[in-house]
Design a protein around this nucleic acid. Structure first.
Lengths: 229, 229
DNA sequence: CTTTATTTATACTGCTTGGTAGCAATTATG
DNA sequence: CATAATTGCTACCAAGCAGTATAAATAAAG
């Protein structure tokens, strides 16, 4: 389930330090960093689970530690406090969505084709990372103001790039949108809503939800005269 | 700002008691009940404000009391505990939306006309009662299971009635919706999203948001061949 | 003007929990 | 194997807060 090999996200390596030491030590240091990163990820996963199920304030770090079969000070040696944990969770969720959008936008195609790919990929990412994203949507008020700000900036970037795509489709005549920047917010809202609403093992499968989302968004931008082909 | 005259919602009057007493006493008892109801409303308002801004768990009843220039035991003489306050807030928000929907549905007209009225009125109610509704969306996990259940039932009623309207429009050929019950959920989600996203004094006015919501929903149900007239 | 009932405040408790100081165990190093 | 360094744990504290027992103040009743 959790392969250690699976790439730590951030190796906070000290370059000066690395260059000073022989190869063996460097390799050892890298492995250690990977292990550290892995531990951080595991803590984050379990924390996000509890935050998702019980809410941020109602979750005790003792319960998170217990789930990991460690103790609270263990967590504190990897994160400076509870708030940092929340920030990482929220940031991760939004960053993943933004990355998914950017990757989808890099696929060549008409605005219509691109929009479909965007909605499909982002919706999938949102479902896969539901915990992270819904924790963000619910607990934004628990973030430190500067942390909340940073994440809001990411969301704004998301909306802006989406708006640019709609603008392109509008100019090409594929879409009928009065104000692309405003429509982008509704589309982005529709996608976010999935995180709050989707329930694993619920009435509808992930695939059905993704397909529905595509249909809904297509209709939201479709010209009154019918879909562009 | 807060007129006492403005009708208490629930007069928990004991009828047997009332019938036993002369008119004067009955009138006095009624006034007392109105005052009690008013106090309850004021507590609820301030509590919802704090829950909205800081979150449920992060809000202390001492701070709510201070805002009202009373003390914590005062609150406890009108609500049995913090959880009851949360329940009333969440319930109020969803009940208002449902009532708005039902009233809108009682207006005669084609499915297209009715849908427009529904979206307009519900969106307005959601904006006006944003605090109550967004507290519900964010703090559902903090509710007691049975309370959460009761409110989910209200939401389900909402979605079902909305689906019936879409079904009617589908049969009349006004709407193009593959599965009304599923589309209803997206529409209901779009409306709920307003509570999380709208910001008083933000970039867009309440009226603009309502108009946008109408447009979006109309497009979501509009047949590929263009809007029905 | 008493007396009784109601309403609100004072003052407290018990518990939870974020966070930490200092110790034990484990691992790496020469 | 001895020593150094890292990593994790035990045991604790201080603060915050939901909830309450009880007294004071106020209003109603006679």
């Amino acid at each position: 389930m959790h392969k250690l090999a699976e790439a730590p996200e951030r190796l906070e390596t000290d370059f000066a330090d690395i260059m000073d030491k022989p190869k063996k030590k460097r390799a050892a240091a890298q492995l250690k960093d990977e292990i550290t990163a892995y531990k951080r990820r595991r803590i984050l996963e379990e924390a996000s689970h509890f935050f998702f199920v019980n809410g941020y304030e109602a979750t005790t770090l003792d319960s998170v530690a217990e789930q990991l079969n460690v103790t609270k000070p263990f967590i504190y040696s990897y994160y400076k406090n509870k708030g940092e944990l929340l920030y990482e969770i929220c940031q991760t969720g939004i960053q993943l969505s933004l990355t998914a959008l950017e990757e989808a936008l890099s696929v060549e195609g008409t605005a219509t084709e691109q929009l479909k790919i965007v909605v499909e990929r982002v919706a999938r990412i949102i479902i896969e990372n539901q915990r992270y994203i819904s924790v963000y949507l619910r607990e934004e008020k628990s973030l430190l103001p500067e942390d909340a700000r940073r994440i809001r900036d990411l969301r704004h970037t998301f909306d802006t790039k989406l708006a640019a795509l709609l603008e392109r489709g509008k100019r090409s005549g594929e879409f009928d949108v009065a104000a692309p920047s405003r429509t982008a917010i509704w589309v982005s809202g529709l996608l976010s809503w999935i995180a709050l609403w989707y329930h694993d093992g619920g009435r509808w499968s992930a695939t059905e939800v993704v397909m529905d989302a595509i249909t809904m968004v297509q209709k939201m931008v479709q010209p009154a005269g019918g879909a562009h082909v």
